[in-house]
């Protein structure tokens, strides 16, 4: 694996590289290089399986992070490729030519995050939400509780309990809190 990373490093910038586990690595590439790196990994390094493609919304940095998760069956290693794209003008190159099933992920991302993938087949069709009119719901500036109260009729009388407190009241009335151990550096 180290050798593969070394070979990639010779070609393009992939910093930072994180090693999560012995079989899970993450690298970050620039947006322009994504097609290049994916086709290289697929064709030369044996990462033939696209496990998933998902997005994370970094509202504070005004960025979306896309993660392409690849898997190598020979050396049994997962490799995540992170790409940061602009949140306002969110657009990404489609990879449905490399993995044909990627169009479904891209369609989902388009619907739930509003990331556009030009040329991807059927990307503008609705996936889960039929006839959605608001901003894409998985964006973090979408207030889902407010939308739910506005759209669906709330039944009054709903109450929530903190499990720890509730169980202490109802079940363990004689519960005695464990004495705090004083340490010197407190």
């Amino acid at each position: 694996m180290e050798q593969i990373l070394k070979r990639i490093k010779e070609k393009i910038e992939i910093e930072p590289v994180t090693k999560q586990k012995s079989d899970l690595y993450f690298i970050t590439v620039a947006k322009e290089h994504i097609e290049l790196i994916l086709s290289y990994l697929k064709d030369y390094e044996g990462f033939t399986h696209l496990a998933f493609l998902q997005a994370v919304d970094y509202l504070e940095d005004n960025k979306f992070q896309l993660t392409y998760m690849l898997y190598n069956y020979n050396i049994k290693v997962n490799l995540g490729i992170k790409v940061f794209i602009n949140r306002e003008k969110s657009e990404m190159t489609s990879i449905h030519k490399l993995w044909s099933h990627a169009w479904q992920y891209q369609r989902e991302l388009h619907e739930l995050f509003g990331i556009d993938f030009p040329d991807s087949p059927r990307v503008h069709e609705s996936f889960v939400l039929e006839g959605w009119e608001e901003i894409p719901p998985m964006r973090r500036d979408f207030d889902t509780l407010e939308y739910s109260e506005r759209t669906y009729y709330k039944r009054p009388g709903r109450s929530t309990n903190d499990p720890q407190k509730y169980m202490k009241e109802k079940l363990y009335k004689n519960y005695v809190e464990a004495p705090k151990i004083r340490r010197d550096n407190d």
Binding site: V128, L129, E134, P137, F142, T144, L145, Y147, S148, Y152, Y153, K154, R155, G157, R158
Partner: peptide, 18 residues
């Protein structure tokens, strides 16, 4: 009945009897 654990979801209804 009242949305259960999905009471604040954007995609599920809260009260079926409506």
């Amino acid at each position: 009945i009242n949305g259960g654990m999905y009471y604040d979801s954007y995609n599920t209804i809260n009260r079926l009897d409506y």
